[in-house]
Structure formats: C-alpha cells, structure tokens
Amino acid sequence: MTVNLEPNIPDPDGFYDELLQAHATLSDEESDAFNARLILTLANHIGDRGVLRAAIEAAK
C-alpha cells in the first residue's frame, strides 16, 4: 500500500475547523502535546509500516 496524497477528506473546511477548535483553549505546550497524541492515534489506525514511513517522508 502507498500513502494517499490525493484529497481524501469530505468537507475539508469542516474538518479543518474541527481540528482548530480542538486546540482553541489549549496553551502552546498543550497544543504540541495534543498534536503528538493525535498523530500517534492516527498512526495506529493506519497501521501499515510502509504507509507510515511514506507519510513521514511526504511531510518532510
């Protein structure tokens, strides 16, 4: 499996808004920690090591 780099989220504006809302009341430090937890949660959902490795590359 390869990492999907094409648009894949329905209602991208709604998702983006929800993501930022989750940060709205957090301090900078809390936001960093929240991002780390979120990335680990999503990574677990993806599971596939090849995909995760490709995603790490794509984000560099």
Partner: peptide, 27 residues
Amino acid sequence: KSKISKAFRNAVLDLAGKHAFARPFVN
C-alpha cells in the same frame, strides 16, 4: 489568530505546493 492556527495554516501551504491532498484546505 493563534500560534497553533498559524502553524497549521503554514503546514497546509508547505504541503500544498507538493501534495494535492493539502490543496482543498487552502481557503
């Protein structure tokens, strides 16, 4: 309006040049 929203905004712009998936977020 905040540091984190600027970080995400700039992440979207950084990615949008390279990857199509980030372009729908550019608003």
